[in-house]
Every structure is written in structure tokens, then in C-alpha cells.
């Protein structure tokens, strides 16, 4: 098995998908010859040709429209939106069109589209390159939102997204692209969407998070373990739909919950999880303390030189975990 970074695992998954299903198409800005600005599609045009891996004009809404039209012609499009902050330009395509098509047509037409896009903070990018907008996407009925936290998951989840007959937004945290390698099988495999994974088992506090924050949470779990505090870390992997059952089971075990997201506090994924727990008998009866939340504050994504102070980190999580533990 090869040691791959997350970006290599993604390229490998795309390679597998193009090989397996001739209806798959990859397109977007600079994905062809240039191989994408992060090299996610490197070498794929050379291998599969311009018919299947091609550049588009710099027009996100058109990229969405092409995906929809191609899906009507029974293709399985895998468009890339170069940076997730540009997603506003294709919101009608996503929220007004592809996510509604199955419903609108009474199930007679489907949109097996996977939109890949890099996102996430801490890489000192210009404005509108780093925002965590998954909460916006998660509010749209009819579309799934998937966020891997490591190379192995990235490949399996991406292939599952491409196989899915409904539209999926697949978000790749830029900070994870090349931060570490792990063993990733060369062959085709999938990881089911909508299923969270317990990545660190514990008994005192459950931390639910996703994307890059999984790694901050793991740091916390290891550090607090030495202090005798046992943390369970749940990696959501899919933020819409949320795997409520896995979270409830963990909360039943630990009685304490901290939800961590890189995105701003208002609305969003963390709010949804907290609401789901607050209104469910099994969870609310198990909780021994109010649910803690760690997030960025409610401002525009911070200027690059301020982003490290603005983004939540392991220390913020430790503070919140201790607050929840010391409640009673």
C-alpha cells in the first residue's frame, strides 16, 4: 500500500473513477493541462483525454449549468470549483437546480453530480479563499455535504460521492492537502456517506467535529488523556446529513458533549448538532452539562495576518472541555 497525502489520495480516487465509469467527466477552471491549482487532477487529462478531463471558462455558474445539462444526458459529472469562496457564483445551480431536480421531476430525473472544492483556513490565502461555508450548503435540502479529515477517508468518501445518484458537495480542507501521509489502497473502495466515525475512544467527554478540526481535537484527546480525562472524538465525515445516532450513542456513554467547527458560530453545522441533541430524549437525559461549542466568532473570515488568532484551536477546545467537565 502506498503512503499518500490527501491530495494524492484524491487524485488516485479520481483516476479510479474515470477508469471505472466512462460516464464520469472532470471539468473546471485549470483542471486540464494545469492539473488544478492544487494538482488534484494532475496527469488525468493526459491519461483520459480532453473529452473527459477539460478546462472551462472562468464562470462558476456555467460550470454548475454544464454539470446539470451533462447529467440530463446521463453523464456523471465531477466539476471542481477552484475555491469554495467562489461558490456564491453557482448558488442557483446548486440550491436552485441540481438539489431540486429529483423532487421537481417526481424522481424521473436525477443529478449524480459531485462538486469538489478546496476550503478552510490557516493557509494565508486572499479573501474568499478560506471560508467554511458548509453550513450554507447543509441548509439546502436534496444535497449531501461531505468533508474528509484524512487521505484514506478522502479517497473512500470521494468514490462513494461519485457513485451516489444524488448531488454531493465534497469539501477538501486545504491545510490537510499535504500535511501528512498515510496508507491508502491503490484499488477502488468506498466509505458510506452519512456515517460518522469514532476516531478516538473515550468515556468522559464527546467531541464532535469534522475536517481539519478533527486533528485539533485529536491533539486535545491525547493531551488530556495524560491528565486523566478520557475524550471521545467523533469525525462526522458527512456534515449533511448528520449521523445523529452515532452522536447520541457517544453522549449516552460520556454524558458530555463539545461540538467544534472552524466556521463562524451563527447558524451552521454545530448549531444543528446541538439542536438535534437538545430535542432528543436519549441525549438530553444523558447530558450532565450544557453542550459546549467551539467555533470562530461571527465576523467575516479574518484577514490573513489575523486568521491564526481568529480560528479555533486545541487550546480553545481544552478550555471548553474543562468548562463542560467542571459544570457540576
Amino acid at each position: 500500500m502506498a503512503q499518500l497525502t490527501m491530495i494524492q489520495a484524491i487524485t488516485n480516487a479520481l483516476d479510479n473513477a474515470l477508469e471505472k465509469d466512462e460516464n464520469t467527466l472532470i471539468f473546471g477552471q485549470d483542471v486540464g493541462l494545469n492539473g488544478g491549482v492544487f494538482r488534484a487532477t494532475q496527469g488525468l487529462q493526459a491519461k483520459y483525454g480532453e473529452e473527459r478531463v477539460f478546462d472551462t471558462p472562468l464562470a462558476e455558474s456555467a460550470i454548475g449549468g454544464l454539470a446539470i445539462g451533462l447529467a440530463f444526458e446521463n453523464f456523471r459529472p465531477i466539476p471542481e470549483i477552484q475555491f469554495f469562496g467562489f461558490i456564491f457564483e453557482v448558488m442557483d445551480g446548486i440550491a436552485g437546480q441540481m438539489s431540486r431536480t429529483r423532487y421537481r421531476t417526481g424522481g424521473t430525473r436525477t443529478m449524480p453530480i459531485t462538486i469538489r472544492s478546496p476550503f478552510g483556513g490557516g493557509v494565508h490565502a486572499p479573501e474568499l479563499h478560506s471560508d467554511s461555508l458548509e453550513g450554507l450548503m447543509a441548509q439546502i435540502p436534496g444535497i449531501k455535504v461531505v468533508i474528509p479529515s484524512n487521505p484514506f477517508d478522502a479517497k473512500g468518501l470521494l468514490l462513494a460521492s461519485i457513485e451516489d445518484n444524488d448531488p454531493v458537495i465534497f469539501l477538501e480542507h486545504m491545510k490537510l492537502y499535504r500535511s501528512f501521509k498515510e496508507e491508502v489502497p491503490e484499488e477502488y473502495y468506498t466509505i458510506p456517506l452519512g456515517k460518522a466515525k469514532i476516531v478516538f475512544e473515550g468515556t468522559d467527554v464527546s467531541i464532535v467535529t469534522y475536517g481539519y478540526m478533527v486533528h485539533e481535537a485529536l491533539k486535545v484527546a491525547k493531551q488530556l488523556d495524560e491528565e486523566g480525562i478520557s475524550i471521545e472524538v467523533i469525525d462526522l465525515r458527512t456534515v449533511s446529513p448528520i449521523d445523529v445516532e452515532t452522536i447520541i450513542q457517544s453522549v449516552e456513554k460520556t454524558g458530555r458533549l463539545v461540538v467544534v467547527q472552524e466556521a463562524q458560530r451563527q447558524a451552521g453545522v454545530a448549531s444543528t448538532i446541538m439542536a438535534e441533541m437538545a430535542e432528543r430524549k436519549r441525549a438530553i437525559l444523558a447530558l450532565k452539562a450544557p453542550i459546549g461549542r467551539v467555533s470562530a466568532p461571527d465576523s467575516v473570515y479574518a484577514f490573513s495576518l489575523a486568521e491564526n488568532d481568529w480560528l479555533p484551536d486545541a487550546q480553545d477546545i481544552i478550555d471548553k472541555v474543562k468548562e463542560v467537565i467542571n459544570f457540576d
Partner: peptide
């Protein structure tokens, strides 16, 4: 209903026709 959306979708269906 979204009065410009059909124009980009049409380009997509057209691209599909061309590819097929």
C-alpha cells in the same frame, strides 16, 4: 422559473450531445 438558468443548462445538454 429562474429565467437565465436554462441557458447554461442548455449548454450542458449540448455538450452532452456533442460528446455522445
Amino acid at each position: 422559473i429562474i429565467i437565465g438558468a436554462q441557458f447554461i443548462k442548455a449548454a450542458g445538454v449540448g455538450l452532452g450531445f456533442k460528446k455522445r
